[in-house]
Nucleic acid binder design. Structure first.
Lengths: 345, 345
DNA sequence: TTGAAAGCGCTAACAA
DNA sequence: TTGTTAGCGCTTTCAA
């Protein structure tokens, strides 16, 4: 039995990958490569007859277009890159999920890089990512001035910075104010009649800003020192437990604790539970991020809610719009936050 | 002041992206493009003099190599694609994190797709991903026979399937036996003297297999029915709480519950705590996955531990080895699991 | 509606 | 060690 189906196993030339190409499909369909390309990408621009022939050829050969070649020729990769500090139990993953869903539906693909909260690594990642010529870059955070920032501006790739505000975004920005969050949490706690405050905070810049604003608001109200435990890179539940132990030892009269993440707050709750400290009666606890299960633990965790999915969906839309040459109406968006009062405060 | 630095703003040709190219760098350095390429990619293969000139030109122009063009020419993308069911609080993210770290260090990039536990979407994702010509594909799970599988085999791209075992992997496999896990958990609980069992399980195939094996082991020991709550797609802590309520209503004598995820198990623990049910005295609870904070909650969660990071690191290594033409010694690996006995069982 | 030609920016292959 | 040439597989441009 003879067949015209190209045999991928037998490489055609030294350099070829051996895979079925548009060329093969075109030959089989008896049309020019560009016509086959049109039939596949813009079926409307081609006669029904040609369309059928090409589709048959695609089916028969199992042709999968090489998007890398297409991207090179069209200067559009349909790839969006996201750079996040962490991919495990991270508040950013909701955003990534929402982006990924929106992108997939539009035929885009997501590249992901994790900086592990290291600025140096973020720069290296950015450099690597720019080399891939993505149509857009999403950053969980705001880029500090520096080489990477300069380069990103020069590259002219659409960028969405997020999860923060700045007067000088590289390009687009979808964020909220950490300063206002610190104040709002302080106000919430003071309104509840709390008098002695503590902070449990991870060592990153945004958490620092929430903490600082929190402290300032407390001081402004004349409510004295805020005992602070910095857990550094250790953003674990265990760190939250240990932090409460420290607080109990050094500032035993504390009646309200603001944690820089929900996981840390859960640690505080866990340790409080173990020691029989009544929450919220004797101690109010608030987290940050609104982890999905925070509402269902006991006591339910009060927290600061950020609509991470919204950020992701908007970022995807903005980036794709820009990739397609459309202007983005409102390139700087403050999505705000909400104080979610539940059982723990 | 005159300068030879190419101006990216002024596009050179209609088609060009306008970015600095290797050509520009080569011209500025006074060498051929291929020589500039060598200076950048294999500095050892070039004279010190040339190296310096090229580096200076790169520095001066801010050149970032276009990896897409490089990939097309060399037929090596240095991209690995990972397809996972979910990216949020998912047991797979540890694996993704480990892969991402290993890949980044070697100059690779990770594309990520989420199937949302849908087989249909997984197929679509696979098709899209193959078009990007990644050097390797990582799958969280084993691919069922079907069109996608056939196509993947035909594409000849190195593949690692994972988190499961099969006699017929597409290519490489790094997994463990869900059947043995079900048995081991049953044995663990029976050894502890438990008599009446329940299951709280999400609606996916691997969880089903653990559950079935668990039930069979219980039956084989003559210990009667296992009351089962299927939470479907709702893999939340809340579902775990609701499940315990159901169990208490329909099978109140239950003294041991095996949950298909740690989050479900935490839900069971939470509800038990609220109702004053003593864990582990009156009720033993086990989860699956060993979420990072399971050891630090109260009571600490007994679970089945999978070394997700190991899977990720191995997968990255295997895939890169294969991309570089090396053979992989042991393409099928059973990484096993361990029963982690903590406070809840 | 279809096609021919000419790249996209890089590297493999071969030659000097 | 360096360079010339010829692609990689696709799409833009221009012409019929």
């Amino acid at each position: 039995m003879s067949t015209n189906i190209p045999v991928p196993a037998a490489k055609k030339s030294r350099r070829s990958s051996g895979a079925i190409t548009l060329q093969d499909v075109a030959k089989l369909a008896g049309v020019a490569p560009i016509t086959a390309s049109r039939a596949i990408n813009k079926p409307d621009s081609v006669s029904v007859e040609v369309l059928k022939k090409v589709q048959a050829a695609v089916e028969r050969t199992g042709y999968v277009p090489n998007r890398m070649a297409g991207s090179l020729a069209s200067n559009r990769s349909r790839v969006i890159a996201a750079i996040v500090p962490s991919t495990v139990i991270s508040v950013f993953m909701q955003t990534v999920e929402a982006m990924n869903n929106a992108l997939f539906d539009a035929g885009y693909q997501l590249m992901i890089g994790q900086s592990n909260y290291s600025e140096k690594r973020e720069e290296a990642l950015l450099e690597a990512v720019v080399g891939r010529r993505p149509d857009g870059i999403f950053l969980a955070g705001v880029l500090r001035p520096g080489k990477a920032r300069t380069r990103l501006v020069a590259a002219g790739i659409p960028v969405v910075e997020s999860w923060d505000l700045t007067q000088t975004p590289v390009d687009m920005l979808i964020g909220f104010s950490h300063l206002e969050i610190g104040r709002a949490v302080a106000k919430h706690m003071m309104d509840k009649g709390r008098k002695r405050f503590a902070l449990v905070t991870a060592g990153d810049e945004r958490a620092d800003r929430r903490s600082t604003a929190f402290k300032q608001a407390i001081h402004a109200a004349g409510l004295g020192e805020v005992f602070t435990v910095n857990v550094g890179e250790s953003r674990t539940l265990k760190s939250g437990r240990d932090a409460l132990i420290k607080i109990l030892a050094k500032a035993p009269k504390t009646d309200a604790i603001f944690c820089s993440s929900d996981l840390l707050a859960m640690g505080v709750l866990t340790e409080a539970l173990k020691r029989g400290i009544k929450v919220p009666k004797a101690l109010a606890v608030m987290g940050f991020g609104d982890v999905s299960f925070g509402a269902d633990i006991e006591p339910a965790l009060s927290t600061v809610r950020i609509n991470g999915s919204d950020i992701g969906a908007m970022a995807a839309k903005y980036l794709m719009d820009r990739a397609e040459g459309k202007a983005v109406n409102q390139p700087i968006v403050d999505v705000g936050f909400s104080i979610v009062e539940r059982g723990s405060s």
